[in-house]
Each structure stands twice: as C-alpha cells, then as structure tokens.
Amino acid sequence: MIGEAAVRAGCRFYAGYPITPQNELAEYTASAMARLEDGTFIQAESEIAAINMLIGASMAGARVMTSSSGPGISLKQEGISFLAAMELPAVIVNTMRGGPGLGNIAPAQGDYFQATRGGGHGDYRTIVLAPASGQELAGLTRKAFEYADEYKTPVFILGDGMMGQMMEPVEFPEPIDPRSLPPKPWILDGAKGRPSRIIKSLLLDTSVEEDHNWKLTRKYERITREIARADTYMTTDARLVVTAYGTAARIAKGAIKRARELGLKVGLFRPVTLWPFPKRALVEMSRQVKDFLVFEMSTGQMLEDVKLSLEGRSNVHFYGRPGGIISTPDEIAKVINTLYHRQHLNED
C-alpha cells in the first residue's frame, strides 16, 4: 500500500534491505519501480548502504524512500542524522516490531522514542507520521513526501505489522509525474551554467555549527507550528480521553464504543503527527478533560510527551502491552471501566 502511494507521490528511488515484518512493501516497490521508465529499486547489501544510497539520490534531486523495522532502523540512524544535517528530503518507513534487540516480529510501538527524539547523533528532529488506517496511510504517504521536500528533512512513517497486513479498500490520490514537481534549486546535478555546489554537514568552526543548529531549530519550530495534527473521536462530552496512536488507537476506538454502550463518557485523542506532537490540541482538551489514559503497545513512551504537554493540568494514567502483545478492545474496555469508576467519573 505504501509502495503504491509512494510511487504515486513521485518517488522514483527506493533502496532497502530485507527484514520482517515489512518485506511486502519492498517487494511491491521492486515491481512498481521496474514498471517505470525512471524508477530505481536497489536491494542494498545493508541497511547502512540503503540509507546512504538515499543520501546520494536525494542530493541528485529525486523523491526517495526506504523502509525497515526496528533493528534495521537502528542501523540507518547514522545516515538519518546526515540527512537531517545536510537538509535532504527522504521518507523512511518503520514497521515496528517487538524489541529491544532482535525481539520478535509481532506488532509493537517501542520505537517511539527513537523516531521522535532524533534517533541518531546530534541536535535534530525528524517528522513522524502515524497512520491508523489504510486510507490514512495512503494519504499520509503523499504528505510525507511533500513535507520532506518542503522542509528539506527526513520524514518517518511509523506503523506496525498490523498495519502492514490490513486489507481495506483504499482510494489512492492521483499519480504525480516527478518531472512536474517544482525544481529544487539546491541539488547536485553538475555545475552547468552555474557556480558549483557543495552539500555537506562538516562545520568545523564551532560558531558556524552553532548557527546551523539554531537554523535547524527554527525550522523545527516552524514545522511544529504548521503541521502538528491530531484526530479526535467522541470527545465533546468526554470525561476520560484515551490517548493512543496507530494500531493502538484502532483498538482503543473499539474499546471506546463498548464503553459508550455502558454509558461511560469516553473519547479518543489520536496524534497523527508524533513529532511534532500535537501539544496545543491536547492542552486545549485538558480544559474540559481531567483524566487521560495513555494506551501504547510499549511500556510507555508517548506517555512522556503527554505528560510534558499537560504539565500537570490533568491526571495522566497509563496502560501498555509491550513485546508484540496486541490487546483486544474488550481488554481495553475493562481498563477504561475500572479507571472510570476509580476516578469517580461516573459521579456528578
């Protein structure tokens, strides 16, 4: 699905290395690129080589993508830091699995910190998009390429194995011919009729590096203002709001439906951008909601962003299942029910 959406977004370069649970994406992209006259698919010798091929192809002006899962994403971090430093657009898909270490191949959300905190060395951030349905995945893949180009920065699509296996009817956006995209005035394509260009990240002069860091920071602030986004479900009268993203948000939605049947006023706050975290919208909601339940398929990572955003304005509770365990909506409904009564939310 991402493969098709990427090609339609004008992506013409993919490099990757096999790792479960996301091989279907690479395989699909291999055939899609083969059908295109100007498409390149490279099965790289390593995750490191793949991300570095993206660096080159991005320097040359193409829309580029790679995909992997936990252990592979860790290996790519060197290159992602360079992409951020050199301000090169790229899209990186992480189909999260259980970890740390080799972990397992079941759906999990343990790579939130890695994705939202920069992941590699140095002072930088990456945009992180977290789709929760097939349709959203298709739309956000398009957005990922647009953000990457607009802000000249690497963009993550953070999903999990569940999302990879989803079978849903999806309407794809119209395909874009990459030649119709606005030219990038910074690429390396040979200094013909113009001064030669340099793309680099080495800034030996400490004051120059400091300036660069602040320049990147201002860009990240602009991104935070412009794209932070969350989706809500049944929050208008909610007394308890579950905060979850991706697959966990889908499970939570099912749980909320059950809780509503029992007459509990529960809603969902679902960050669509994990970085920038939709802090403003959450703070806004805390005027009305005094209890938030963070639900993650991890031991609690987004939990920190929720707490940092709310700064003690509301009670923040947590329920998590790490290791590739997929909670059922019934299980979460029970957690909601218990919490709802413990916090006396059923009383007027």
Binding site: A49, N52, G56, A57, M59, G61, F82, S196, I198, L202
Partner: peptide, 30 residues
Amino acid sequence: VLAYDYFDVDMGESPHGRGAAVATGIKRIL
C-alpha cells in the same frame, strides 16, 4: 574531507566509508 573546498565541481559529502553507496544513489538518478 575538505576536498569540496578545492574542487570547483558539484560535491556531496558522504558519511565515513559510505562513498560508494552515496555515489550509487547519485548515479542511478543521473
């Protein structure tokens, strides 16, 4: 590492050791 300060042609930095991969990416696009 500072070769780009000397050659008057387009130059793109590579992380340590990854020159062949970066060059591959550029060449496949152009």
